[in-house]
């Protein structure tokens, strides 16, 4: 997961960056990996007492179009944002919303119980609950001394 922390005072700059990204996306770039750190969808991660909480903004995705899989500590989110049915591009007067297929892979934090992952999707916000595994208690190892 690319860690990119923004301070609040950088908010305006970040928004400007977003605008630039939108611009760049409309231009065919010879190096598609140029802005690798900006991945879709944006994700926030929170730690709670019993679980980690992963939150992603995914407006316009219906639960049926969203594919979540987990394997070997990697969580994969996949989906597609479609434009309105049967509307040709030349009927658009303004086009700012992202469209198309997207995929994102995230490395799960350690000590997560993959079997008990759950997700809820409300009003375009996806919340994935990653329950923590119970902390392993230190186990005493009996030491057997040989007769000398």
């Amino acid at each position: 997961m690319a860690v990119f922390r923004w301070r609040h005072s950088w908010g305006n700059l970040r928004d400007l960056e977003r605008e630039f990204d939108r611009l760049l996306e409309s231009i065919k770039m010879p190096f598609p990996g140029l802005r690798l750190e900006r991945q879709y969808p944006p994700v926030n991660v929170y730690e709670l007492d019993e679980e980690f909480l992963l939150v992603a903004e995914l407006p316009g995705i219906s639960p049926e179009n969203l594919d979540l899989t987990v394997a070997g500590g990697i969580l994969t989110l996949k989906g597609e944002r479609r434009g309105p049915e049967g509307i040709l591009d030349d009927r658009f007067r303004r086009h700012e919303r992202l469209r198309g297929k997207w995929q994102r892979q995230l490395t799960l934090p350690e000590r997560v119980d993959e079997e008990r992952l759950s997700a809820e999707f409300v009003n375009g916000v996806l919340k994935i609950h990653l329950p923590k595994l119970p902390t392993v208690k230190p186990r005493h190892i009996p030491v057997v001394g040989g007769e000398s």
Partner: peptide
Amino acid sequence: EARLLHQEFE
């Protein structure tokens, strides 16, 4: 109790 670990959107 949620504590932010990683932030990509506000």
